[in-house]
């Protein structure tokens, strides 16, 4: 009897060790691993996903080729980072004046469960008119995030609700779809606007 329970504990201990190892692998090397620092997004031409914009049109990375692109992830139930980013981008676009019309500006939700096409339409309406809201299925959102080498995670909150952790950087691509640089969350206008100009000029240098 004692021997059996000893064996039982041994098996349980092995089980715990095994699970710990698997959990460790998952988080460090496996699918749960955080993206390496400085992992560059794929060129838009190599991404593969299909979403719906806030006017119901089918869109994907190919939609963005031909003009320089500002793209970022967020969700409309986000009270701080997302309205700040959208307001910052609206401010940068104002600073670009008429040139803003030459840009694709895309806000991709990481919360498709709550951010329906209608919710996105209602939300982006409050910001600069150049900003497009993209949503879609969980699977297609995951593919988009993967292409950008971004991350997102659903996190339950105390009140039974949930929030989303997500990459808050703004991604810049030139008109050929090549990644140019990122603008960090809440980066000041005097750094952000020249970066956008750079993405626009790379297009000219290349496209001439």
């Amino acid at each position: 009897m004692r021997r059996r329970s000893f064996l039982g504990y041994g098996a349980a201990a092995f089980g715990v060790i095994g699970l710990t190892l698997i959990a460790g692998w998952w988080r460090v090397d496996g699918p749960g691993a955080p993206q390496a620092v400085g992992a560059r997004p794929l060129p838009l031409t190599e991404m593969d996903f299909s979403l719906t914009d806030h006017e119901g049109r089918t869109v994907g990375p190919e939609t963005l080729i031909g003009s320089p692109t500002i793209a970022f992830f967020g969700f409309t139930h986000c009270p701080d980072v997302c309205p700040t980013t959208l307001a910052d981008i609206s401010d940068w676009l104002d600073a670009l004046g008429g040139d803003a019309e030459k840009l694709n500006v895309v806000f991709i939700t990481v919360d498709p469960e709550r951010d329906t096409v209608e919710a996105m339409a209602e939300y982006v309406d409050y910001f600069h008119p150049a900003i497009r809201g993209w949503t879609g299925t969980e699977r297609q959102i995951a593919r988009a995030v993967e292409g950008f080498r971004a991350t997102y995670e659903k996190v339950p909150t105390d009140n039974g609700d949930y929030t989303m952790n997500h990459t808050a950087s703004v991604f810049l691509f030139d008109a050929l779809g090549r990644f140019v640089t990122t603008i960090d969350y809440h980066e000041p206008r005097e750094f952000a606007v020249p970066k956008i100009r750079r993405a626009m000029n790379e297009e000219k240098a290349e496209g001439a």
């Binding site: 955080p34 993206q35 620092v37 701080d80 980072v81 009140n159 952790n165 808050a168 969350y185």
Partner: peptide
Amino acid sequence: MPEIHLTSTNEQGVSSM
């Protein structure tokens, strides 16, 4: 439910609250 929350952004640029 009013609460003070902190947004933090890690070195991968991921924001959480």
